[in-house]
Amino acid sequence: MAQQYTRKVIRDAFVQMLNERPLNKITVKDIVTVCEINRNTFYYYYPDLYALLEELFQTEFQKVREEYNASLSWEESFLVATHFALQNKKAIYHVYNSLQKEELEKYLYNVAENVMSRYVEEMSRDIPAADSDKRLIVTFYQSALTEMLLHWIGSGMKEDPEKVIHRIGLLFDGNIALSLQRSASLKDKW
């Protein structure tokens, strides 16, 4: 319990600092000072700040997996899944503009894959779509959503993401179900 608590205190201090300044302006010394721990305690849990960043995204991704609700639309699920990013826009922007951008990309890609995989599985429950086609649909939407989020972050996060995701949902409403139905009808043609 104490180890989990210490890890959480370190992560929380790190997120707070990321919301205030770029990643390259944060040091282990800053974190241990805020957390009132010694350097050895920090290094007991993390070899460096990059390992801390990786664990931060892994922890947030685990929360997404645990909070998934099959009764939500993919749009609602995606917004729930990106809650951390929306609550910590400056931190996300600072990571985006750092050498550790790939950790952010990996996190967003995993979140999009998780949401879309579960959604496509739920939608295909009564549709005999091919597994390979379901995977293609997931990958298509996963890639599109990830790139849209990265573009949104890179352009300064000015637009309201709820409006954008809702609009995408309206524009593409029914396309996933239609694609699954097409897959079922194409089974014999491949």
Rank of each mutant, 00 (worst) to 15 (best):
R125Q: 14
K63F: 01
K189M: 12
V111N: 04
L171E: 07
R11T: 03
T146F: 06
D131C: 00
I165E: 09
G156E: 09
G169I: 13
S155R: 15
K89T: 11
I31K: 01
V64S: 09
A177N: 08
Q58D: 14
Y141V: 08
W74V: 06
T82A: 11
E162Q: 13
I37K: 05
N114S: 12
E67H: 07
L52T: 00
S183H: 01
F57D: 04
P22E: 12
Y119V: 05
L178W: 08
R167G: 02
V28T: 08
C35F: 01
N19D: 13
I37C: 03
L86C: 06
V95L: 07
L180N: 07
S98C: 07
P47C: 05
E20A: 13
T139H: 10
I168H: 02
K90P: 01
K8E: 10
N114E: 13
D48M: 03
F57S: 08
F57T: 10
L72H: 11
N97H: 15
Y43T: 00
A13P: 02
P128D: 14
T59A: 09
K189N: 03
S155V: 10
E60A: 02
R7L: 11
E20L: 11
G154D: 08
S117H: 06
E76Q: 15
A112E: 05
Y5S: 12
H151R: 14
K134F: 01
H166N: 15
S73K: 08
I165F: 09
E162V: 10
N19Y: 03
T59G: 04
